[in-house]
Design a protein around this nucleic acid. Structure first.
Lengths: 217, 217, 217, 217
DNA sequence: CATGAATGAGAGTTCATTCAT
DNA sequence: AATGAATGAACTCTCATTCAT
């Protein structure tokens, strides 16, 4: 009995927002249009009015999320002056964004978990762009003799995969520690510690000589 | 006078095997009983006869997969004599197993992607045991002064997450390279190269002094 | 400050015109308000504004079509001087009208095909008047000894049914001949040939002695 | 609460039978699966179990009806010895069949009323076969000098169209006479009178010399 | 042990229609 | 007069699950 907004933009955005949450939590198939509509307080039919069909909504959700993160990472990179600083920006921005929008890593993991069989052109493109960005940073660093023995794809997954898993398993890790007290599941680590740690480790792994390169201010 | 299809046990196993494939490829919801039955060449009702319901079958599938890997990784560890060797065994065994049974990483990623909301006790336990194993290796190595600055949870995800993503995205990465030729998506890397590379990198990242420690024969 | 689309009457008429086409082509149920509106270039809501609801629009369409033909056939009759001439006028006018407005026979066949269950009073009345007209011509002819053995209802259907089917199956008959070349589906016959032929045959069937009666000039 | 038949053939046939009635009465779109299932006393899902989808059921219904009539007409023809006898058999068999199964003419009129836009290959074929049959009778008669000035397509529609309309408008014609007493809508004519009349008229129209040709015994 | 028939619940989607501007 | 947003009811179709044989 929520009275209609009569504000197209707001309704449309609300649908996307709530759909994002539900898709991330329950996956594509287990999320129903009814459920989304209820959460938005709008009629089920509005979903189809604005997004044509469920797949269209999903596509829009993914596109939105991936564009946003890509934008953010690209922007953060601009302030920097060296591959190392770029790398740091990449890691920290990605981590921060995932922490703030924990739906994203869920959605990405889900998409990747079926070999991208249902990945739309657009999502595929977004993921590729993100990788291309990191790849160019790493290649540049290698060219400048700062990074060594780089296989960009694997490094990419080391960074992105680790962050994704840490974010998506947050509640899980808290539970695990409750059961087995000796286990350190990093359940108290905040996102800044985590990204610092990852950055440090990635530097080691890329055989960076610490003192010589400027990082992000 | 109806001739039974040879062997009940075989039918039951066939259902599990085919279900595993389909669950991994399409996810829980998108996999239908009809589809599984068809692939097995048995009647749909048999699934319910043997596994009570779809959730029961899924549970059995996950249980089977996780037990198998756990067995394998635990066993392989025994052959070795140092934390470094154990680490190597862990990485290579896990990677090899995932490569041979690519359904597993898919299933795991899928489960983790919703914060384990639907993770059964049993699956949760299995994942925890896997982490406990690696954790003990890392702790032991740190105690012996071989590994440094270890946060086991993050290292665990770095290893397991990277391997999972590399395996699940295999076909995806091949496509990506077809589109953008300059991109190196490691599409030709075989699993041995990959696990070698990861092991090497993890050693760097754990600040292992290379020459002093024996590895697995 | 919204500039009205020129002319309310024009909008209303456009809706009717396009609705007629679509109802004829796809039937009542398969024709949607959206579709009609799109074809008219007006907003969907206008249909309800002008015609209250879909049934109202349909009613208006049928009424319009039937009135038009009735007007035309009745009028044409007046120019003539004998039952035979009247009959000729009836056949040729009906045929010509159907050929020019092929929606009408479609709509009529559709209505009749469900035993008139949904036939509105008004449509029923129109169809009845058409039959009454032919009936009176035939009766008069019989009274004058020109026509013999007349069962008006059957003759009526022989004329009207044949013309309706020939018009509605035009494209169908063209296809049929393309498939089976030996078949003569009269696919090239134009409406004048057809109505001439029908008139000739109806004369034979009514046992008219050819030379004695004047026809329409 | 009808207890299940557990007789596949019976259930399947019941669905077809009831669907035929409803499709004929209300048309394709206005007939719902729910309605059909209710009339059969079976679960809605059975329709899809046996016929895949609504269109499949419709197709099966049409196919069944058209095959049946074609069979009947072909069979009746065999007993005869001259084109005239064949023609008589055609008309009387068709009329009788339509009278006994009044769904058929409704379905045919409906299909033809949209220019066969939705006519499936199979239905189209059946209709074509029926026409081919009559066509060959007429051509043969013309070759033997019994029939004159034959345009088979038009004659076909004169026969078939007239019978179809007479059958489908039966109740309508009864109503019309109630309103306008002077009107003779042939509301009391039985099917034998009708087909006799039509046959007689068609003979006149084909300029058959009455005494010289044998008809069906 | 195995099958095909049957079911009920619910999903996505469409659409006539109304409301507010 | 005209529009786009919003709704509720209905429809087709799917699917896990059960029943009878």
């Amino acid at each position: 009995m929520v009275k209609p907004t009569r504000d197209a933009e707001a309704t449309k955005a609300s649908i996307m927002q709530n759909a994002m949450m539900l898709f991330a939590k329950n996956g594509y198939d287990a999320t129903t249009a009814k459920e989304i509509a209820k959460k938005c307080g709008v009629n089920k039919a509005m979903i189809f009015y604005y997004y044509k069909n469920k797949a269209g909504l999903y596509s829009a959700v993914m596109s939105h999320a991936l564009e946003a993160i890509h934008e953010e990472v690209i922007t953060s990179k601009k302030c920097c002056i060296s591959p190392l600083a770029d790398l740091e920006a990449f890691i920290k921005t990605y981590a921060k964004y995932c922490d703030k929008h924990p739906y994203l890593p869920s959605l990405i993991l889900r998409e990747l978990s079926d070999s991208g069989a249902h990945l739309s052109e657009m999502m595929f493109e977004s993921l590729r762009k993100l990788f291309t960005l990191l790849s160019s940073i790493l290649k540049e660093g290698e060219a400048q003799g700062i990074f060594h023995n780089v296989t960009p794809m694997i490094i990419h997954f080391m960074i992105v995969g680790t962050i994704n898993l840490l974010v998506t398993t947050k509640s899980l890790r808290t539970n695990a520690v409750a059961i087995n007290e000796g286990l350190d599941t990093c359940s108290d680590c905040d996102i800044d510690e985590i990204s610092d740690y990852i950055f440090t480790k990635i530097k080691l792994l890329l055989e960076v000589k610490n003192e010589e390169n400027p990082t992000c201010p």
